[in-house]
Design a protein around this nucleic acid. Sequence first.
DNA 1: CTTGATATGGCAGCCTTGTTGACTTTCCAA
DNA 2: TTGGAAAGTCAACAAGGCTGCCATATCAAG
Lengths: 172, 172
Amino acid sequence: MQKKARSPQMVGEDLLFLTDDQLRRGIEAMFFAYRAFTADPDLILADMDYGRAHHRALHFINRDPGLTVTSLLAVLGVTKQSLNRVLRTLIEDDLVESRVGRRDRRERQLYLTDKGAALERRLSEAQRSRMRTAYRNAGPQAVAGFRQVLEAMMDPETRAQYQALKDWPKDR
Amino acid sequence: MQKKARSPQMVGEDLLFLTDDQLRRGIEAMFFAYRAFTADPDLILADMDYGRAHHRALHFINRDPGLTVTSLLAVLGVTKQSLNRVLRTLIEDDLVESRVGRRDRRERQLYLTDKGAALERRLSEAQRSRMRTAYRNAGPQAVAGFRQVLEAMMDPETRAQYQALKDWPKDR
DNA sequence: CTTGATATGGCAGCCTTGTTGACTTTCCAA
DNA sequence: TTGGAAAGTCAACAAGGCTGCCATATCAAG
């Protein structure tokens, strides 16, 4: 039923939400919303010498302290060098600490310093604040749908990663 | 509600969806989903000498043929030069046509050529295809919530723009 | 102990796409 | 008619993606 996706077949269910027009609206909504989504932390970051990439690194290190460079690489979906550049500045600036791995001494385990944790909180709170307002205005039901669609949009691999992060023990 | 993040007022409604944990889940979902959202067109664009910015320009020119550079600037939310560079290559490659404004000769009105329209369709179809699958899997109710939350996330100005695009007459 | 694989780091250099600032052309209103 | 403002163009710079190549340290297997 792909080619005639927008055709008025309406077998049982109402399929109007799958028309190209509706899809385009969704695409535009994603574009505009994502821009807003990153805007607040970007403002804070701009004052320092950091960018969005630094925020992402801080977020995931905060979420899973002690994770290795390779794990972080996998989560962020960027190349070594991209991450390395970011990590180097974060370490130099004493926001992130890199300790030799316990099990495997080839690995580096990443932790936020107090300073790093403070910045992470500041950035995340800016982002959460917007999200909170949006959630509150839209209501729980809408939020559930929001999450469902986003999840359905991910690549299967990414979705697995995302779901694995579900109830991450804060401490480990 | 682990760290009793928000106020534990729970007035009537269940406010668990506003905990910091739930918000963080939403933030991560946005990050992962947006990456997927751009992945398909990015693959096509990578083959040519284009990037995501070219796709965005094509999208909005297609949607509103004859719009001026300034309008496009406002929609995309970037600076003139960012857009200009992209537009220049698109015009050089005969994907976009720039005509001197009818009313105001300072303005340039932008149109897709046949070649440009073809590429736009190819890119958009790749993106729509993923969106369609996600929509179908999530169902109409979830889609409604998805759109509601995204809309609530936008800056008021952007939201107005977004809503103004609602029933754009394809022709004008 | 040697050897191959793995984890990380570093350098060079490329590309896209964001930025600011200066400049030209055009329009409009005093 | 002239001066300011608006539209667009261009030059130069920065962030942060990417690839490729190489060095080092470590581990695991033989």
